[in-house]
Computed example of a mutant assay.
Amino acid sequence: MAACQSSQPVFSKRGEEYRSAREIAAAKRASRRGQREGSMASTSKDRTSRTRMHNRNLDKDVATVIKTARSYTGVPYKWGGTTRVGMDCSGLLCTSFQSIDVTLPRTSDEQSRYGDNVKPKDIREGDLVFFGESKRNITHVGMVTEVISEDEVRFIHASTSLGVMENNLYSDYYKKLFVKAVRPPVF
């Protein structure tokens, strides 16, 4: 299994020059700044999640980690994966947090002990959410990307069947598997 702490992940597409997650994040930030300046002159309204995050004044690190995780949307599931070729749930978070120079533990069980427990009503963007058959057997992890209402909390994760995607924490399926939420000590 690839350990995200020991390797420098590469996020470039085939045929492009190889770049680290940090380099890509810096380029995207510069691009966003340019788009914001350009959009101030136009009258069209951007209704993307990036705008919602900006309007909510999320911590810059939280926004960076969420944006990095979302950049993997559609990447297929691969057990032990930490690259665009394939990603598992804990690998997605481990790799996403590297964009702010934070090394998370590698497995979902270890990540469930990294930070303070959060009550479901207090969940916010950047919190980690854990799932399993029981409280003693955590088998899956995701990260909250958006708190829309008390009935809709979006989280990103790597699904074994559909790859990296976002779902509602309070859907019937995930509600019955939910074990706990944790706020990483970096936020």
Rank of each mutant, 00 (worst) to 15 (best):
D151I: 03
R154W: 09
Y114D: 03
S149K: 03
C4V: 14
P185E: 05
A69G: 07
Y114N: 03
K28Y: 12
H54E: 15
I156A: 06
L93A: 09
S42T: 14
E17A: 14
P105Q: 04
S90Q: 07
L58G: 05
M40L: 13
H54P: 08
N57P: 01
L104G: 02
T68D: 11
G15N: 03
I138C: 08
E146K: 11
R32G: 06
S171P: 10
G15D: 01
S99P: 02
V129T: 00
Q35S: 15
Q35M: 14
L177N: 08
R183L: 06
D101Y: 04
L58D: 06
Y72G: 05
Q35F: 13
N168D: 12
S149A: 03
R70T: 12
E133D: 15
K78L: 15
V186H: 13
R136E: 15
Y170R: 11
K119C: 09
G81E: 01
I138G: 04
R36V: 09
I138W: 04
F155K: 01
F187R: 14
V179W: 03
S7Q: 15
G132H: 00
L104Q: 02
E125M: 02
E37S: 12
E125W: 01
I24S: 11
Y72W: 10
V129W: 00
K119V: 11
E125F: 02
K13M: 11
T107V: 08
Y170N: 12
V129D: 00
S12L: 09
E16N: 09
I66P: 01
S134A: 01
N168E: 10
D59M: 05
V75H: 04
T64L: 05
P76W: 04
Q98K: 11
H140F: 02
W79I: 15
L92H: 03
D172L: 12
A27P: 05
R70K: 14
S20Q: 06
T73G: 12
S134G: 00
P76D: 07
T64D: 07
A2T: 15
M165R: 14
D101R: 05
N117Y: 10
F130A: 06
R183K: 08
T107P: 07
P185L: 04
V102W: 04
F131C: 01
V147F: 00
T139K: 04
A158R: 00
L58F: 06
P185Q: 07
S108I: 09
L93G: 05
K13Q: 12
V144D: 05
T73A: 13
Q5M: 12
G126I: 00
G80H: 05
K121Y: 07
N57V: 03
S39E: 15
Y72H: 07
R70F: 10
Y170F: 14
V65N: 01
K121C: 07
E110L: 01
R19I: 13
H140T: 01
